[in-house]
């Protein structure tokens, strides 16, 4: 895949200051009708923590150096594989380009200085506001040898929800990837049997995406109708 942004099937390029995932307006979530609070004009953008620059601190630099070195040894350009590195709340996150995910994971697992033997599965996150990179797949890798934990994040556009499967590297991801497919529609290419796991086989849609409604029904209680949680007033 080329790095330029041609059409919608390629992830959008990264922003230096972290992705904007949405805009928050007003104060009390009164989106329909007048906002009498006086805060109606308040507009704030919501952005995820941006890229960090070196030094990352602690063992983070060591892991980053080793990973970059190991990728270079394989003839890869680390800058192409690692889109950005975020250090936030004492956690190290590598944002990896999806075409390099398997290579990076294999390196992280096998390199003696890295040795992230245990993958704790994949967690899908849907950011409808993060245009061009709506779906994120988040892996947490644990090294029992060194007692470390890092996060690897891969993002895909909603139109092209494909990313390579990590089952060949971490067989434990089998069910986790099926779960992420079931709930978010992420297609893990190369997975041995990517079928629904939680929902019935004939279920329509991917229920934990943000554009899928919660599906609650209004409840009648003591003469009043109480709407489903997603229909109630929320606070923005």
């Amino acid at each position: 895949m080329s790095d330029e942004h041609n059409g919608s099937s390629v992830p959008a390029p990264r922003d230096e200051h972290g992705e904007v995932i949405g805009v928050r307006r007003g104060m009390f979530g009164a989106n329909n009708g007048g906002d009498t609070s006086g805060y109606g004009g308040l507009v704030r953008t919501v952005a995820l923590p941006g890229a960090s620059s070196r030094p990352y601190g602690g063992w983070f630099d060591e892991v980053a150096d080793e990973l970059e070195g190991a990728l270079e040894e394989q003839g890869l350009v680390p800058e192409n594989a690692i889109e950005k590195t975020v250090v936030d709340r004492d956690e190290l996150t590598f944002h990896i380009a999806r075409e390099h995910l398997v290579n990076v994971a294999k390196t992280l697992r096998d390199d003696p200085a890295l040795r992230f033997e245990l993958c704790t599965g994949v967690s899908g996150v849907h950011f409808p506001g993060d245009k061009g990179r709506e779906l994120h797949a988040v892996y947490h890798l644990r090294s029992l040898t060194h007692g470390r934990l890092i996060r690897v994040e891969v993002s895909t556009p909603d139109e092209d929800r494909h990313l390579p499967s990590l089952v060949p590297v971490y067989p434990t991801n089998d069910w986790h990837e099926r779960e992420a497919y079931d709930f978010f529609g992420l297609v893990f290419d190369g997975h041995p049997a990517l079928t629904r796991i939680m929902m019935p086989d004939d279920w329509q849609g991917f229920p934990q995406r943000k554009d899928y409604p919660l599906g609650g029904i209004p409840v009648e209680y003591k003469g009043a109708q109480i709407p489903a949680p997603d229909q109630r007033r929320s606070y923005s």
């Binding site: 919501v46 952005a47 709340r89 996150v125 947490h140 644990r142 934990l149 996060r151 929320s234 606070y235």
Partner: peptide, 27 residues
């Protein structure tokens, strides 16, 4: 505040990990 975190505890069955993501809201 906006961001994500992963915490894990040793439950009787093994590693119980929680990945929480916030968009800066009350939910």
């Amino acid at each position: 505040p906006v961001g994500q975190a992963y915490t894990a505890v040793e439950s009787p069955k093994g590693e119980l990990g929680v990945h929480v993501v916030s968009d800066g809201g009350t939910r």
